[in-house]
Computed example of a mutant assay.
Amino acid sequence: MSLIEKLLAKAAPSNSAPAAAQAVKVLVRVYLDSAGHVTDVAIRKSCGDPELDARAQREIAVMRFPGKSRGAKTSHNWHDLTYTIHH
């Protein structure tokens, strides 16, 4: 797992839900600016439910990730992220 994937995983909420909730995963591609703001979200692999895919996009769009550190090449790039949704 790359450093940016670890940072993205830490920044994504855990979505703690009751045990009876069903979890689905959506693979998204996230574009970050140098401050760590999400500027675009694209679905790479759908969970099979368009409504849940759209929900994942909305939730990720308002997240903030760690900004670019000196010498890092992790911002202003697309990053893949597996996002879990409990429903």
Rank of each mutant, 00 (worst) to 15 (best):
28 V>Q: 05
54 A>E: 13
54 A>N: 09
42 A>V: 10
48 G>V: 06
61 A>G: 08
49 D>M: 01
28 V>I: 14
30 V>F: 01
60 I>D: 06
81 L>C: 08
65 F>N: 01
83 Y>S: 14
79 H>S: 14
69 S>N: 02
39 T>V: 10
54 A>W: 04
38 V>P: 02
40 D>L: 10
58 R>V: 07
33 D>Q: 07
52 L>W: 06
83 Y>A: 11
47 C>L: 07
62 V>T: 15
41 V>W: 01
67 G>H: 06
29 R>D: 10
67 G>L: 02
52 L>H: 03
70 R>E: 14
55 R>V: 10
37 H>K: 14
70 R>W: 07
38 V>I: 04
40 D>R: 12
47 C>R: 01
49 D>V: 11
51 E>M: 13
50 P>W: 01
82 T>R: 09
54 A>P: 01
79 H>E: 05
64 R>P: 00
51 E>S: 13
34 S>D: 13
40 D>Y: 01
67 G>R: 10
64 R>G: 06
56 A>N: 06
71 G>Q: 05
41 V>K: 02
72 A>V: 00
73 K>T: 13
58 R>E: 15
43 I>G: 04
65 F>T: 06
48 G>I: 07
47 C>V: 04
68 K>I: 12
54 A>K: 15
47 C>F: 05
62 V>R: 13
57 Q>E: 15
35 A>P: 00
70 R>Y: 10
61 A>V: 01
38 V>W: 00
42 A>T: 11
49 D>T: 08
67 G>S: 13
73 K>Q: 14
83 Y>C: 11
33 D>M: 03
70 R>L: 12
77 N>G: 08
68 K>V: 14
64 R>Y: 00
67 G>T: 03
83 Y>T: 05
49 D>L: 04
79 H>L: 03
55 R>F: 11
46 S>I: 02
31 Y>G: 00
80 D>Q: 06
71 G>K: 03
50 P>H: 07
45 K>V: 11
66 P>E: 04
63 M>C: 15
70 R>M: 11
46 S>D: 09
35 A>F: 10
70 R>Q: 12
77 N>D: 13
45 K>R: 13
32 L>I: 07
39 T>A: 02
40 D>A: 15
72 A>E: 15
50 P>M: 06
34 S>T: 10
80 D>M: 02
31 Y>V: 06
65 F>M: 08
70 R>I: 14
77 N>C: 15
75 S>D: 11
56 A>Q: 09
38 V>N: 00
72 A>K: 05
67 G>I: 09
60 I>V: 15
36 G>T: 04
